[in-house]
Lab assay of single mutants.
Amino acid sequence: IGSLMYASIFGNVSAIIQRLYSGTARYHTQMLRVREFIRFHQIPNPLRQRLEEYFQHAWSYTNGIDMNAVLKGFPECLQADICLHLNRSLLQHCKPFRGATKGCLRALAMKFKTTHAPPGDTLVHAGDLLTALYFISRGSIEILRGDVVVAILGKNDIFGEPLNLYARPGKSNGDVRALTYCDLHKIHRDDLLEVLDMYPEFSDHFWSSLEITFNLRDTNMIPGSPGSTELEGGFSRQRKRKLSFRRRTDKDTEQPGEVSALGPGRAGAGPSSRGRPGGPWGESPSSGPSSPESSEDEGPGRSSSPLRLVPFSSPRPPGEPPGGEPLMEDCEKSSDTCNPLSGAFSGVSNIFSFWGDSRGRQYQELPRCPAPTPSLLNIPLSSPGRRPRGDVESRLDALQRQLNRLETRLSADMATVLQLLQRQMTLVPPAYSAVTTPGPGPTSTSPLLPVSPLPTLTLDSLSQVSQFMACEELPPGAPELPQEGPTRRLSLPGQLGALTSQPLHRHGSDPG
């Protein structure tokens, strides 16, 4: 009997000691992992102490058991019943959930998450997105703005933001810190809205009876308010094209079509300037034949640059190039080494500058006005007194259609001029006259002087055409309008007829 009692007592005591040691061994194993994590990542002392304290409290609170892992091991129907039991206190005593059906309560219970916070733990920081609604079931918390405590909340209090009033989550206007050990039930806004969409009859009752104890939403960050730039940057990543407008005076608003859609830094370009900076079609017209890549860069430059609305530039004389043409100036200075066709295309550029300027006046029909002061630039669209967005969009579309028509007509005119030049060069190729044979009589004449090349004649003739079109064909006081194609086609051969009437002889060394 004594040996039996000794064996039973010894066996029970050893089993008890073994169970104690097993729990202690698990605790030390998990604690060792936490300390190894702290050492590996070199976490500083204040945060390291918070980690160790939280682990110790969580171990004593749950005995080292992962409740979520245990809950996920059950089937979904059983999980709903378990969640309904775990959140029964909240669902029974909170006013917004009263009167809900059994199915609605089960769906809500599945969406709730339980959070346990030790003292000093910050649940929400200032500036964080308010993605959830919090219900306090135990403990107390404090809300701070800077170093000032603005509120202390306790059991059955609710904090967050009214989700039904805002389409997008706002930002917190303060820090939420736990004063004691707290148990909180939180539900994400997407989950709550999903359940309320499934039960629309409960939705009206819920929003009407929901009383948020403390609204954390920062009202200064609401979209459309003066301080909402940061919020707009976070939620409006896919922005449309940006529009900046110059201020319109009362006198300017009476004149229709007073602005032109141009790229940034293009205030001095012609009315047909689009795409790359520098001139019509993204580059100076005089350098068009020598740089074919300008047409390839036109599309990307047009689509990537934001639109700006600026006044037209001052008018340019008909014979003056659009500006920024070092290529043609070098050719004029060193005409001995340049291609003979460069002079002809220089005359073509003069005609283009004249036609572009006159067509700009035809479509816009307003006098040039000086540029406004820099303080009046970049007025935002949302400022008071601005035109409605639809009106601005319609004006932009009208300007775009005008620019497209202008570009089409300029292309047709350019093709006409090039065809005339090619026809003239085919009839009378460039050549130098040879020395004529002296006559049989004693009164022999001296050799004839060489005839100037055709490109120079073409430049003079085209300059005469531009001056003739600019000065004589337009009646005084009438708006400057571009001439039609047949009129220009008839004027060019008439001007060139006198020049080509002389018999030109080919030089023996000319390969053409």
Rank of each mutant, 00 (worst) to 15 (best):
E325K: 15
A261C: 13
P429Q: 10
D147F: 02
P318H: 13
N220K: 07
Q255K: 08
S349T: 11
L327S: 11
P162E: 07
P503D: 08
R138I: 04
L454M: 15
A412R: 11
E332C: 09
L377P: 13
A267N: 09
E201V: 03
D190A: 08
L129M: 10
H205T: 10
Y166N: 10
L421G: 05
L457S: 09
T426Q: 13
S140D: 04
Y166C: 04
P511H: 09
S444F: 08
D183Q: 10
H185D: 03
G224I: 13
L381V: 13
P374H: 09
I222M: 04
E254K: 07
P429C: 09
S314F: 14
E230F: 08
F159V: 05
L418M: 03
P430Y: 15
G494N: 08
F159R: 01
S411M: 09
C182Y: 01
L492M: 06
G299C: 06
S358N: 07
E320Y: 12
R177D: 01
E320P: 06
L327W: 15
E329N: 04
P453V: 11
T219C: 14
G512Y: 06
V417Y: 05
K333I: 10
E365M: 14
S225D: 13
D128N: 03
P447W: 04
R409S: 08
L381W: 07
G233R: 09
D183C: 08
Q362T: 11
V348E: 11
R395W: 09
S342I: 06
G508W: 11
L376F: 09
C338E: 15
P486F: 12
R361G: 07
D510I: 05
C182E: 01
L179A: 11
T408I: 08
L406A: 08
G512C: 06
S208G: 13
G127V: 03
D250P: 13
R368C: 07
S349K: 13
R316W: 07
N339E: 15
R389D: 15
P256W: 09
A167H: 13
E254I: 12
S291E: 10
R302F: 10
D250F: 04
S284K: 06
T180F: 02
S209W: 04
P292K: 11
R308T: 12
D190G: 07
P306C: 13
L144A: 07
P384L: 12
R395V: 11
S140A: 06
F245Y: 14
P380H: 04
E211C: 10
R217Q: 03
T337Q: 08
T131H: 14
Q495N: 09
P455T: 11
T416D: 11
Q483W: 12
P306L: 09
M198D: 14
S314Q: 11
R316T: 12
D191Q: 03
L427R: 10
P447C: 06
S444C: 09
F202W: 13
R248E: 10
N173A: 11
S446R: 08
N404V: 14
E407L: 07
S375A: 09
Y199W: 09
S260Y: 08
G270R: 13
R246F: 09
A412D: 12
L376S: 07
I222R: 10
R138Q: 07
P453I: 07
P169T: 10
L129V: 06
Q502T: 04
R145E: 11
F202T: 05
Q483G: 11
L262P: 12
R316H: 15
G257Q: 06
I187A: 02
G154P: 02
P326L: 12
D330F: 11
P322A: 11
S466P: 09
A431C: 09
A498R: 10
S260L: 10
S209A: 13
S286H: 07
S313G: 10
T445F: 07
G299N: 03
D252N: 08
A371I: 15
Q419Y: 04
P264W: 06
P322Q: 09
F235Q: 11
F159G: 03
Q422V: 06
G299R: 13
S225M: 12
S137R: 09
P479A: 07
H205Q: 09
T436R: 10
S244F: 07
G439R: 09
V465N: 15
D128E: 14
L129D: 04
L457E: 07
Y199E: 03
T373P: 14
S236M: 12
R423D: 04
P169K: 10
T443I: 13
S382G: 10
S284D: 15
V348S: 06
P223L: 08
R217I: 03
D252T: 10
S272I: 12
L179Y: 06
G265F: 04
P200L: 01
T253P: 10
K171F: 10
P223D: 10
R177W: 01
N404G: 08
F202Q: 05
R395F: 08
F235I: 10
G257F: 05
L499H: 15
F214D: 01
S358T: 11
T500N: 05
R359D: 04
E194V: 06
I152S: 04
S203W: 04
P321C: 11
N156R: 06
S305R: 14
T445P: 15
Q419A: 12
L327G: 13
P322N: 13
L163C: 10
D510K: 07
R266Q: 10
E407A: 06
V150I: 12
S260K: 08
Q422L: 04
L341P: 10
R409W: 04
S382A: 05
I143G: 02
K171H: 10
G257P: 14
R266H: 10
